[in-house]
């Protein structure tokens, strides 16, 4: 019956977002970085659904549907980029890809 205070969900989602951010910064493998971005997107989804339910408003859930669709699109394009990168440079480690760095 939603007896918990909303802060519980908000703090949990902040913690998950934080773990995702640490992953994006510290890892080198492009696929794992991609998965950490998914973690962060999901943390935001949890916040949106918590607010949607505690405010009794539908907009949060519609927004989550949009985020999920964009995440699916991002998965398709992102993994295609990783595949193209691997075909050209034989690596998925982002610190070995420095063509645009000078």
């Amino acid at each position: 019956m939603l007896s918990l205070p909303i802060e519980y969900y908000l703090v949990l989602s902040a913690v998950i977002f934080l773990i995702g951010a640490v992953g994006v910064i510290t890892r080198r493998n492009a696929i794992i970085i991609f998965m950490c971005i998914e973690l962060m997107l999901n943390a935001v989804n949890l916040t949106l659904i918590a607010f949607s339910q505690y405010l009794g408003n539908m907009v949060g859930q519609i927004m989550v549907l949009m985020v999920m669709t964009v995440a699916a699109a991002e998965a398709a394009v992102g993994l295609a980029i990783v595949l193209a990168l691997f075909r050209n440079k034989q690596t998925v480690y982002l610190d070995e890809v420095n063509l645009l760095k000078w």
Binding site: L2, P5, I6, L10, F51, Y54, G56, M58, Q61
Partner: peptide, 17 residues
């Protein structure tokens, strides 16, 4: 953050999802 939890919103939430 402001506490948005009100009793009628919680009742609406049951049918919201």
């Amino acid at each position: 953050a402001v506490r948005p939890h009100t009793s009628d919103a919680a009742a609406a939430a049951l049918n919201n999802g």
